[in-house]
Design a protein around this nucleic acid. Sequence first.
DNA 1: GCTTTAAGTAACTTAATGGTTACTTAATCT
DNA 2: AGATTAAGTAACCATTAAGTTACTTAAAGC
Lengths: 215, 215
Amino acid sequence: MGRPAKTDVAATRNPGRTRERILSAALKEFAAKGFAGARVDAIASRADINKRMLYHYFGDKEGLFKAVLRRKISERQAWAEASSGEPTETLPFWFEAACKDADWVRMLEWEALQNSGQKLIDDKERRATVARGLERIRQRQARGQISSEFDPRDVMLAMRSLTWFPVAFPQLTEMIMGKSVFDPKFQRERAAFLKKFAVAFQPANVQRVKIHFAK
Amino acid sequence: MGRPAKTDVAATRNPGRTRERILSAALKEFAAKGFAGARVDAIASRADINKRMLYHYFGDKEGLFKAVLRRKISERQAWAEASSGEPTETLPFWFEAACKDADWVRMLEWEALQNSGQKLIDDKERRATVARGLERIRQRQARGQISSEFDPRDVMLAMRSLTWFPVAFPQLTEMIMGKSVFDPKFQRERAAFLKKFAVAFQPANVQRVKIHFAK
DNA sequence: GCTTTAAGTAACTTAATGGTTACTTAATCT
DNA sequence: AGATTAAGTAACCATTAAGTTACTTAAAGC
């Protein structure tokens, strides 16, 4: 029961590079097809590595999926801190970020659909990031940039909704807007709308000033 | 190559009922697991019909998926017409509708993730429904219920975003709000927020009146 | 330099799963 | 009433795809 096993091994080895190749190929495959739809063989050939290595590094398909998510999460985490200021700035900013990294939105969408109430990957870290985000909103409320009429959590959810929905539902967006989400023209126009609409989050007196300026 | 085929056929036949059972079982399975994740055998046993019937009526798995979507679309279509009036009423209304029919939101979410720019199922009818929705928004703008500052399409997309996002991303919602999307308490509170927030869509003078009343 | 460890390869196995074959029988049509 | 059609059943099959086995060889440790 011996196997042939005469090999044309790649001249040099490079565990780091192999791991990296697998992860980035897996992100593409999972973002495109989801967990159930993704094919391990497709990931392997996309990464141009032997399928066996994938099991070597990540145990199984699910382990790989989790690793991909985890990596993206930590990547985004650092990124998330980089925003502050007026809603008229942050809304377009987050919208553009979602457009640029649609794979990230899609990964969370797959997560949303797959997961039925179990514990999430990196739950703790993610909650901590959310908590820091809420804190920043509170600060902006204190500074008068955001209305104190609203619960910070409501504000965060509303902002996420407005900025991510078009990327999460590109087919509905295209139907409503008549343009692809990835059309630069749509992105510019939507950013402009969000900038205008963002006054909804500001305190009433600031709103009135803005409205008077505008007229 | 004969098969045994001694059968315990159900006493009565009922094509309509069988079709219906398959469709409703398939909706549950597809909404829960998506196209790739759904199992034809699971649908058959859930519907308590022979798997063969599923192929008899719908050709193949994809045909069944399309049939399920199509059915839900026409169901929702009629429903969609039933809304009009102030944004302070429609936003909570649509949010509650999304919560009640999470399967529908999930189906569109699966569609969003699967579909990469190909033609959609029932594309024409859906666009027509969107067009009618936009027309209703224009009417409300004319009546002064919605600000004419905004493009109706921007308004529709923003409203969809605000009302559907929590159902589409329950895990993020739970992280931000600390409550499950399906917790009645969350639903009440969110409806209240949306009602308050809806003034953002109203004309500036109406907003000012509301703000003065509130204070 | 020699041993051990870990990266790498190719072929293989096995369970799951979409779809089919071959048949039976209730309902419908003429 | 007899023929035809369509609903229904059970067993089967082919393929796909996750995961393994059995091996090779480059690099790290001593």
